[in-house]
């Protein structure tokens, strides 16, 4: 417990951590301020007109679908020829669409929390993932280099305990920070939506989905933190983690992806960590691979898509993080600390 308190104090005193927190607050303030400045509460007439436009849009979709069905069933095309209509009417079936036009779509300059919350949350999660990775790496990297770890080991000559305490304190702190930051962030934009934008329809369903993305995002932040910590421990340096990240992106995500495409490797997206990150965050991810349709009699409807669902992606991410962390502990247990 004392060790945890000491680690917390060290972590809080790190310049880099402070800098990243300031940066987070700054990015947050800028986003909130520009949103606030660019949004206004819609007047009753604006709202009415938007609602009307949305209704019209939905009606014209319905009309188009009806025409399409009618043409398919052999009726005569209407005067303008119906040339915009697809062969497969289900493509424009309003019932099958992901979403239908709503009033918010016709309110330029009005912030709608219901529509913007998800992308805003994704942005925050991306920032926190980077934050966790960098803080995790620099925290142990700087300590290994400055002799802080050696000093500590002279007091507590139990290496695994010392390293585990560091990792635990780090993960706890990052989690609390990420939670506080994201709650403050969402709350601020919610308030902006309520007071200077479109309050929108915030159903239980909406909150459940947002909460799920939030929870999955936090898991991702913790995984990134542990990975940064583990690589920096293995390489004895903060820069080891940065280098590994840069090398991974360039060599694998860009280079190997290109090579895999050239050699026509099947479902090559499955080898990319970014695919798994996306699948985990969104619940699933769809990728295109034309080879799926080459296998003969799959039929005309083959669209060449395959889906990656969150569970295997989570397992991949956990496996990599766990493997790196276990390796870091195993190496640290035996290493010469100079």
């Amino acid at each position: 417990m004392n060790l945890v308190r000491a680690e917390l104090e060290r972590l809080a005193a790190r310049r880099f951590v402070q800098l990243m927190v300031v940066l987070l607050a700054f990015a947050f303030a800028v986003t909130a301020a520009t949103t606030l400045a660019g949004s206004h509460k819609p007047s009753a007439s604006e709202l009415n007109s938007a609602r009307q436009q949305a209704t019209e849009a939905r009606q014209s979709m319905e009309t188009a679908f009806q025409e399409c069905v009618a043409r398919r069933d052999g009726a005569q095309p209407t005067e303008d020829g119906g040339s915009f209509l697809p062969d497969d009417c289900s493509q424009i079936d309003p019932v099958l669409q992901d979403r239908l036009p709503i009033a918010a779509d016709f309110l330029p300059g009005v912030f709608s929390f219901a529509q913007q919350a998800r992308p805003l949350l994704f942005f925050l999660i991306a920032f926190l993932v980077l934050f966790g990775f960098l803080v995790g790496a620099s925290y142990i990297g700087a300590d290994l280099n400055s002799g802080g770890v050696v000093n500590l080991l002279l007091w507590r000559p139990r290496r695994l305990t010392v390293l585990a305490t560091k990792l635990g304190t780090l993960l706890g702190t990052v989690l609390v920070l990420a939670l506080l930051a994201s709650v403050a962030y969402l709350a601020t934009f919610w308030v902006i939506g309520q007071t200077a934008g479109l309050a929108g329809q915030l159903s239980g369903e909406f909150w459940r989905e947002l909460g799920a993305v939030h929870g999955r995002g936090l898991v991702l932040v913790l995984l990134a933190t542990a990975v940064g910590f583990a690589i920096a421990t293995l390489g004895r340096h903060t820069s080891a983690a940065l280098g590994a990240l840069a090398a991974y992106v360039v060599v694998w995500e860009l280079g190997a992806r290109l090579v895999l495409e050239i050699v026509d490797a099947p479902q090559s997206d499955l080898f990319m960590l970014t695919s798994h990150v996306g699948a985990w965050l969104n619940g699933e991810a769809r990728f295109y691979d034309e080879q799926i349709c080459r296998g003969g009699d799959i039929g005309f409807n083959c669209q060449g898509f395959y889906t990656l669902s969150w569970l295997p992606s989570l397992l991949v991410l956990l496996g990599i993080t766990g493997g790196l962390t276990a390796a870091a502990f195993a190496v640290f247990r035996r290493r010469d600390l100079i």
Binding site: N2, R5, R10, G147, N151, L152, R156
Partner: peptide, 23 residues
């Protein structure tokens, strides 16, 4: 062991307090 290094941003007092706490 060999001139130990300390975290430059801490005061001497705080450095020792951290170690005292950890130990």
């Amino acid at each position: 062991v060999e001139s130990p290094q300390f975290f430059g941003n801490f005061t001497g007092y705080r450095t020792l307090r951290l170690l005292a706490r950890a130990g």
